[in-house]
Design a protein around this nucleic acid. Sequence first.
RNA 1: GUGGACGUAGCUCAGCUGGUAGAGCACCCGGUUGUGGUCCGGGAUGUCGCGGGUUCGAGCCCCGUCGUUCACCCCA
Length: 416
Amino acid sequence: MANKRIQAPKGVSEYVPPRSKLFEFVRESLIAPARLAGYQLMELPVFEDTELFSRGVGASTDVVTKEMYTFTDRGDRSITLRPEGTAGAMRAVIEHGLDRGRLPVKIWYSGAYFRAERPQAGRYRQFYQVGIEAIGLDDPAIDAEVIAIADAGFKSIGLRQYRLEITSLGDAQSRAAHRNELLNYIATLDLDEATASRALINPLRLFDDKREVIKNAMAQAPLLMDYLSVASRQHFEKVKSYLDALDISYHLNPRMVRGLDYYTGTTFEFVHDLLGAQSGIGGGGRYDSLMAELGGQELSGIGFGLGVDRALLAAEAEGVIAIDGFVSDLFIIPLGDSAMQIVLELATQLRGAGKIVEIAFGDRSLKTAMKAADKSGARNVVVVGDQEIASQSVELKNMSTGVSVSVTIESLINAL
RNA sequence: GUGGACGUAGCUCAGCUGGUAGAGCACCCGGUUGUGGUCCGGGAUGUCGCGGGUUCGAGCCCCGUCGUUCACCCCA
């Protein structure tokens, strides 16, 4: 009886050579600007107490109500695979007392997140995000800095065909004032049951509906932007002026809706043109009450999450990155067993000096080994046999020019 | 979760109105004596996603299932 072939779980994204190199490049590029701005790493668990998300992300959100991987562990605890990064980061900040220390707390993180959705292009059940959080400052300048960091990441990959959309969700009083007006307006509409019940949970959702009928119906709906309190309005105006000063272009989108309940004030989203239905490559915003909600100090914060999978897809769609061959510095071909011992040692030495060095294993013919060297993408090749061991020198062959030069084994490192 | 399309060698795909599988690329070996990329010769590879059904006979038809993909939904 043949063994059943085991496949990866449905909808996970995975990266294997040679494309994994692009993934690595994209992930590192996205987070590099945060490092340069003084953000520090936080490495967190991929699973948390379920309550962290129902309280932090919001019990009414789709993410919490129907997309979480929740299970009971052996100690009868309800555990959930993290669907996003901010709640866990806040939990850790509070647990380690960072919110009682020097402010702002500036952290970055990177890793896998989980959502049990139906898979689609750019939407996976396990996906990768990098994110940052800046906690403990209300200064609109840091809103602009956070947005600028995300933008710098995308730009450094070479992405061009994306746009930044921003809005302000205001403070609690702004939203309360608007919510009443909006519900009154929605009450005048003739909606199907599903839409109506969604509207009751979060009326802002209707702004995001893609159906033409709803779009038209919502065209005259009151906008939150027009109900901002004086403080919220001033804050948002400042953020915009800083973005202008940074020469970061943005589109005001007063109808933007975010799926996580904790967002307040400045909120933003990066949308890419070439990605189909799953076009958001990153997003984030300010959260005024999340820290307190999770039992920490009453501090406001702002952060973002950028989709590594989608940024990679976008970069490929734009043709700004492509798989190139693997390149190494040196390929060493040992002839015979005593040569192998020396080569093993030599390779270790060169690698210690930071050189990428591969060895021809398997005792194959020289011709075959040369072919292997060619295919490996090595810039240089040396053969080590009895002659070389006796003379302590090797012919260093440049694979692109075909030219060899004689160098002593000792000085090989300088010749690479 | 709902609906549509798809699932044949590592990859891209072909396979006529059902008669038990092929191409290109890639891969492996060789073209003698210690040097690759071209060329020539040779070679391996698939339980045709999986399970069941119809049939004398199924990669081709039917059902189920798993997966992929696109849209809805949702969002990174």
